[in-house]
């Protein structure tokens, strides 16, 4: 039956179908892995992501390899990754074994050479990371921790920390979470209602800005306090 639908000449059509199937498989796989960004992945997760992509690309390019040869290893890896992640969430020792421990590379303004050596991190790389985070002087840092995902967390010395409103005995107005209400001229009813506002409120806000309808707005966000941020659409000539 299937052979009649796709006779041997339809090579490109087969490639297309196989590509779509494998792509869907990768999407499901990466979705199951979670929402973390590439830079935040643990070494094992990064390796897994790369292997999954590679496994899918082989049967995608070569029609002579059965689709199952791509699907089975991907499924197996996802199962193994899930088992490891559940185990590492439950057992601290296992997590340490799998992901390692965070390393303190600067303690009270002093660079800890031993930890740098252990993590094969050079002083130049450390200073570069500090500069990226806005610190030029290691003495201004109380702790710098190299996390298990390779990112550097920096805790400045108390005297180098920016002052907060609380420390200055100031009262800051409450800030709500801005929610997208109009995106490229389209009104997102669900978001508007989740804020507790109706269409009439929105129309009032648009009137204040000299706009007549959501189609004239490129971006509009609002928070629970009723504060809005609006970018009208550019008028094309």
């Amino acid at each position: 039956m299937i052979e009649h639908l796709f006779p041997r000449g339809d090579f490109l059509f087969v490639v297309l179908i196989r590509t779509v199937l494998l792509y869907l498989m990768i999407i499901v796989g990466l979705r199951l892995l979670g929402k973390r960004q590439l830079g935040e992945l643990e070494p094992t997760e990064l390796t897994l992501t790369l292997i999954i992509a590679d496994l899918a690309s082989v049967p995608m390019q070569d029609n002579g390899i059965p689709l199952l040869c791509g699907v089975i290893p991907i499924l197996t890896l996802l199962c193994c990754a899930t088992i490891l992640s559940v185990c590492s969430a439950r057992f601290i020792r296992f997590r340490t074994l799998l992901c390692g421990r965070p390393s303190i590379v600067i303690r009270q303004g002093k660079v800890v050479e031993e930890e740098l050596r252990k993590n094969r991190l050079t002083v130049d790389e450390l200073l570069e990371e500090l500069r990226i985070q806005g610190y030029t002087d290691p003495a201004a840092i109380q702790f710098a921790v190299l996390e298990t995902n390779g990112q550097l967390s920096v805790l400045p010395q108390p005297w180098a920390k920016p002052a907060t409103a609380g420390q200055l005995s100031l009262t800051a107005p409450p800030a709500g979470l801005p929610v997208l209400v109009i995106s490229d001229g389209r009104l997102l009813h669900h978001n508007l209602h989740s804020l507790g506002f109706e269409g009439r409120w929105l129309q009032k806000q648009l009137d204040k800005l000299g706009l007549s309808s959501p189609s004239q707005v490129f971006l509009l966000t609002a928070d629970q306090e009723g504060n809005t941020y609006c970018v009208p659409k550019e008028v094309r000539r």
Binding site: I72, L75, T76, L78, C79, C80, T82, I83, V86, C87
Partner: peptide
């Protein structure tokens, strides 16, 4: 824990299908 059992079951199923 449900995810763990599902993964183990899936691995078992794949092994059984291979056999």
């Amino acid at each position: 824990m449900k995810r763990l059992w599902i993964s183990l079951a899936l691995l078992g199923l794949l092994s059984a299908l291979s056999a």
